[in-house]
Amino acid sequence: MAEQVALSRTQVCGILREELFQGDAFHQSDTHIFIIMGASGDLAKKKIYPTIWWLFRDGLLPENTFIVGYARSRLTVADIRKQSEPFFKATPEEKLKLEDFFARNSYVAGQYDDAASYQRLNSHMNALHLGSQANRLFYLALPPTVYEAVTKNIHESCMSQIGWNRIIVEKPFGRDLQSSDRLSNHISSLFREDQIYRIDHYLGKEMVQNLMVLRFANRIFGPIWNRDNIACVILTFKEPFGTEGRGGYFDEFGIIRDVMQNHLLQMLCLVAMEKPASTNSDDVRDEKVKVLKCISEVQANNVVLGQYVGNPDGEGEATKGYLDDPTVPRGSTTATFAAVVLYVENERWDGVPFILRCGKALNERKAEVRLQFHDVAGDIFHQQCKRNELVIRVQPNEAVYTKMMTKKPGMFFNPEESELDLTYGNRYKNVKLPDAYERLILDVFCGSQMHFVRSDELREAWRIFTPLLHQIELEKPKPIPYIYGSRGPTEADELMKRVGFQYEGTYKWVNP
């Protein structure tokens, strides 16, 4: 592979701008107003304001973009700056750019259920340069409990009458099928589907988006991507930290609602779906819905739930269990780990287990898709061969690698495990991989909904998990304890083995 010439960040961002501006969906010269509902909250200060700053800094926003914060707290732009700027990672050389960014910011205080507050917000936006005809993007960085009041008031008082209007809704989209349907029906009564952007930030990850290209742009994968060759698929999300004093919020939802029903299920769809007619948003989402419709409700015998306990040999936070978090209700049975087996009941995947695993306070930070292939028929190497695996590593250190057998150097035919490896950090030294939120917010500006969740996708996802969630809430089974920093409950490994996964433990990928 030829040595790549190092590029400056300015040059890299210039390439990104060229890609972005050559499309006809990006209205570079139009006025846009980006409204952050819930501007005083954690999500706004840690993710949304920093993301908008990065896009502005790199010249990736339309030229005439204004940012308006809205929340109940009586704040000023200076207050917003004070709480969000520490997350910007701005350099001293960017000081003038930073001043320009905050000059485009404003803030309006108001209630979430008060019509007069929204009329005041609308008047404020109209007073901005060309504000009355601007395109408006409303980001709901809010708890779902206020979605209905907020969307109703936005629709009645704050819509642009000339430009387009788009609304970005953060997960969780309800707690179960019934609450999700209620919320979807409410929002759909106010906005068209092409105006609604239900954001799952995992769909903005580079390697998640790469799944489609790997599958449908490489001839070698087509013939082997089926039940005849693939023994099982494992989708993993692991965090090495616990709730760390923020367990009160987590306890309301648990690990299945927080990660599995959305992030992991979306990745499953991209692995299992048929080739779409095109890369058009609805063509892709149509195929994802077909996959979900082929999955039956989760069966309790295919589920393992766990909850982390303190590690007596650990240090600091590792010595504390979930129930030691003062914000967690006493005696909570909320799971911090889950392993679930699903089956896609169609011709391509009949009988292939899709194993979804996620948890907190585990032994490493990792998100990946792992396809394990069947054993080689007619073994001539005296059971020395391990199964081939194709691994798409989402985070950290984005990579695609194939675990395969090669001859060990020497005189004899002794096979050993090795890999074919594409590590993004080595291959793409001159490429700026956008943060997931950067990519998705740019998608909203461009009107691309491919990486957002459609209402029928959402409904099918909740259909699969709601009976299990209701059973857990009714019966309150005690989750299996696992030690902070471990791989999780051993019962999860036993479940995976029972459905056909072979864990060798003899080879570990190392970032080159």
Rank of each mutant, 00 (worst) to 15 (best):
G247M: 06
P62C: 07
N226M: 07
D114K: 14
N122M: 13
F56E: 00
K97R: 14
G222L: 11
E63N: 11
E170I: 02
Q22N: 15
A44Q: 03
R175Y: 13
F216A: 04
G174R: 03
P143L: 02
K95F: 10
E156L: 14
E206A: 07
K205S: 01
A25D: 14
L190G: 06
Q111L: 12
T76P: 06
L61A: 01
R120W: 12
K82T: 13
F216T: 02
V108P: 04
T243F: 00
G174K: 02
I36M: 03
K205Q: 00
S73H: 05
D24S: 12
I162E: 14
R175A: 09
I67T: 02
E148Q: 11
S117I: 05
I52M: 09
N226I: 05
V233I: 11
F253S: 11
R72G: 02
Y197G: 04
N229P: 00
S180I: 02
N165P: 03
L98N: 01
L75G: 08
F26S: 11
M37I: 15
S117L: 08
R9F: 10
Y112H: 00
I230E: 03
P92G: 12
H155Q: 12
R104D: 00
L130A: 14
R219G: 14
Y112D: 00
L60S: 04
L142V: 12
E85S: 10
Q22C: 09
A39S: 05
T145K: 05
S132Y: 14
T91E: 11
P240E: 11
I256A: 06
K45V: 08
I168L: 12
Q161A: 15
F66H: 14
G254R: 01
V146I: 14
G204Q: 01
Y49R: 04
L130Y: 14
Y107G: 00
Q11E: 15
L98W: 03
M207Y: 02
S188D: 07
N122L: 07
S73E: 05
V233L: 05
A115H: 15
I162W: 14
P62L: 07
I80G: 06
N229D: 10
I224L: 15
V146G: 02
L55V: 02
Y49S: 00
V12W: 15
I35N: 07
G174Y: 00
N229T: 07
S157V: 14
R57S: 06
I199T: 08
I256C: 11
D251F: 03
R198Y: 07
R72K: 04
Q133T: 11
Q209A: 10
A2T: 14
Y118N: 04
D113V: 08
L128A: 08
E85D: 07
W53M: 00
L60H: 07
F191Q: 03
Q178S: 15
E206V: 07
I199F: 06
V146P: 06
I35V: 11
I80H: 07
F34Q: 05
A25E: 15
A39M: 06
A231L: 05
F221S: 08
A116T: 12
P92W: 08
A103Y: 10
I255V: 15
N122R: 13
I168K: 00
D42T: 00
I15N: 08
K238F: 02
L43E: 01
M125N: 08
F102T: 02
Y70E: 00
R215L: 04
G59S: 07
D200W: 03
Y147S: 00
H27E: 14
R74C: 15
I48W: 02
I48N: 00
S73C: 06
G174E: 04
A39R: 04
I48L: 05
T91A: 15
N185C: 13
N126K: 12
F253H: 06
I230F: 06
I33L: 12
R175F: 11
A78H: 08
F66A: 08
F34P: 04
E239M: 04
F250T: 02
L190M: 13
I36C: 04
R74N: 13
I80F: 09
R81P: 04
G59L: 07
L142Y: 03
L128H: 11
A115S: 13
I67D: 03
S189A: 12
T236M: 05
N165M: 11
N126I: 11
I167T: 07
E206L: 07
Q178A: 15
D200R: 02
N229H: 12
Y70G: 03
I196E: 03
V208R: 00
R81K: 14
T151E: 00
L16D: 14
L43F: 01
L121W: 01
F101V: 00
L43Y: 04
F173L: 08
E63R: 14
Q11T: 13
L177T: 12
S117P: 11
L177V: 14
V77M: 11
I154T: 08
I187R: 02
A217S: 14
E19G: 13
Q209M: 05
Q119D: 15
D113Q: 11
D176Q: 04
H155M: 09
E19W: 08
G110L: 03
I162Q: 09
A90P: 09
I52H: 06
K45T: 13
K82D: 10
N126L: 15
R215V: 02
S157R: 13
R246G: 04
I162K: 14
S180H: 06
N126R: 14
I168N: 02
D181A: 11
N135I: 05
F26H: 14
I196V: 15
L214S: 07
T145F: 11
F21V: 11
F87C: 07
V233Q: 03
H129P: 15
S123Y: 14
L60V: 10
R9M: 10
R136T: 06
